[in-house]
C-alpha cells in the first residue's frame, strides 16, 4: 500500500517537474519573441508590414498646468488587447521620458487587467496605488484619467475603465472620486 502511494507520488512529482520546465521554456520564449499564431485573429493588431511593435500614447502630468500631456511609447504588437493594454499601463508606471510628472505613486504595480465583452477594462493595482497617493481632488482626478485615457485612447475595444486595488473594489482613492463605477475617458483634460 505504502509503496504504491509512493510510486504515484513519484510519478506526480515527475509530471510536475516536466510541466514546470515546459512553462519556463514557453515563458522565456514569449518574452523574446512574439507568437502571432497562438492569438485569436479578431483581437490581434493587424498590419501589412507585420511589424513587431506599435506606438501608444501615454498621458503624464506637467509642472505647468493641470492637464494631461501625451507621450508616445512603443509596445509589442500582435498580442491580445489585454496584453497590449497591460504593456501600455506598465509603460505608464515607468517615469516619463520627456520630463513630465508621473500621475501614479512610484511603488505601484499592475496586478492584472481583465476586459469584459462590453468593453469595460478592469485594472487591478497593488495597494501602493492608494497608500502612496497624495489624496486631494485634483491629484485623484488626474491619476484616474491618465489611466483611463491611456487605455481608451489607444484601444478601441476599451470603452470604460474600472479601477481595483488588490483585487478589490474601493469606494475612493483618497476620499473624493467614486471608484465604484467604471470611467469613460475625459479627453477634455488633454493639453493641446
Amino acid at each position: 500500500m505504502i509503496s504504491n502511494r509512493l510510486a504515484i507520488l513519484g510519478a506526480l512529482l515527475i509530471l510536475l517537474a516536466v510541466l514546470i520546465i515546459i512553462f519556463i521554456r514557453m515563458g522565456g520564449k514569449g518574452k523574446t519573441e512574439q507568437e502571432p499564431l497562438s492569438l485569436p485573429p479578431e483581437i490581434s493588431q493587424s498590419s501589412d508590414e507585420q511589424q513587431e511593435k506599435r506606438k501608444v500614447v501615454l498621458f503624464y502630468l506637467s509642472e505647468k498646468d493641470a492637464l494631461l500631456h501625451p507621450e508616445v511609447r512603443e509596445i509589442y504588437a500582435y498580442t491580445s488587447v489585454v496584453q497590449e493594454a497591460k504593456q501600455t499601463l506598465e509603460e505608464l508606471l515607468k517615469e516619463s521620458q520627456s520630463g513630465y510628472l508621473s500621475p501614479i505613486p512610484p511603488q505601484t504595480k499592475l496586478r492584472e487587467i481583465f476586459l469584459t465583452r462590453k468593453g469595460v477594462a478592469y485594472v487591478d493595482f497593488s495597494k501602493d496605488f492608494q497608500v502612496g497617493h497624495p489624496s486631494g481632488s485634483t491629484a485623484e482626478i488626474l491619476t484616474i484619467y491618465s489611466i483611463v485615457n491611456s487605455l481608451a485612447y489607444n484601444f478601441k475595444s476599451i470603452k470604460k475603465v474600472f479601477i481595483l486595488i488588490e483585487g478589490v473594489e474601493k469606494e475612493t482613492l483618497g476620499g473624493h472620486v467614486n471608484l465604484n463605477k467604471p470611467f469613460l475617458p475625459q479627453y477634455s483634460l488633454i493639453a493641446r
Binding site: L61, S62, A66, S102, A139
Partner: peptide, 17 residues
C-alpha cells in the same frame, strides 16, 4: 468643504465642483 492637493508643488487656487 475640502483643501486640495496635487502632484505638482506649484498648483494653486480655488475651485468649486
Amino acid at each position: 468643504i475640502h483643501a486640495n492637493s496635487s502632484f505638482r508643488k506649484n498648483a494653486t487656487g480655488s475651485e468649486t465642483f
